[in-house]
Amino acid sequence: MSAPLGAVVWLLLGPALLLAAGPWLDGFGRRVRARLESRRGPPMVQGYLDLAKLASKEGLVAVTNPVTAAAPWVALAAAVTAGLLVPLGGATPLGFAGDMVVVLYLLGLSAAAVALGGASGASAYGFLGASRELLLLLLVEPVVAGAFLVVGLQAGTFRLGAMASWELANGPTPASVLAGVAAGVALLAYLGRVPFDLSEAEQELTGGALVEFGGRPLALFRWALFTRWLVAAWVVVEVFVPTPLRGAAGAAASALLVVVLFGVLSVLSTLIARLRIDQARVFLVQIGLLMLFAFTFAVMGA
C-alpha cells in the first residue's frame, strides 16, 4: 500500500477503531477489579452499555455557555486525533517529524478540556475538581513528557515511529528502562485512575469536574476518557516495549501488551487508597526524580 493511500485509509478507519476499542478497556478494567474484590463483575461490554445508556438520556446542563458545550467534543476529538498519530504494527501512516510532542499536547488538551468543562459550570465541586485536575496535570505532564524526551534524545528524533525503531534496534538502555518505569507508574495519574482520581473523587466531590454533566455530554467525556486510556497506554507500549513483528501481527502483539499494561494498572488501582492532593504531589515529584536520573543517563549516552 502506498503511503498516501495508507494515510487516507487510516484517517477513515483509525477514529472508528479507537472509539470502538476504548470502552472495551473500561469493561476489562472493571472485570479485573471485580475479580480482586471477589465479585463476578459486569460483562466485558459494560463500557459500551454505559455509554449507550448515557447517550439515550436527556443532556441537562445547569449553565449554557460555549465552553460547557464545546468541552466534551474537544476532549474526545483531541484524544482521537492523538491516537491517529501513534504507530501501529510498525507503520505510522500519519507520522511526521515531532509528532511525539503533538501527541502529548493533544492528550494534555483532552484532560484540560475536562477541567475547563468543570470550571465553566457554577458548582463548587466542579471548580474544586477542575483545580485538582489541572494541578495533577501540571505535575504528571512533565514526568510523562520527560520520559519520551529521554528516548527521543537517545534516538535523535521526536518522531514516534523512528523512536520505536531506534528502541527496537538498540535494545533497552538503562536510560530508556528508567524512563519507561517512570512513565508506566505515572500512567495511573495520567489516566486519572484511583489513587489519582482526585478530580472526580465521588466520595469527596460527587464527581468533581464532571458533576454538572449528564446524558450525552457526560457520555462524550467518558468516551474521551476511555480513548485517552487506550492512546496513552498504546503510545507507552509502542515507544518503550516495541514489538519486532510487523503488520497485523505487530498490531495484535501491541494490543496484547496494551491490555496487559492496562490490567496491571487496574490491579494497582484496586489495591491503593485514594491520595490527597498533597500526597499525590509528593509521589509524582519522586517519580519525577527517577525520570531525571534517566535523563542524566541519556545525556551521558548510556
Binding site: 477489579r33 489513587p195 466520595q203 491503593i272 485514594r274
Partner: peptide
C-alpha cells in the same frame, strides 16, 4: 471507611 477513601477492595472484602 475504606470506600470513602476510594479503596473499594477493602469495602467489598470486609462486607464479604
Amino acid at each position: 471507611a475504606c470506600h470513602i477513601l476510594g479503596f473499594d477492595f477493602v469495602f467489598q472484602q470486609s462486607w464479604r
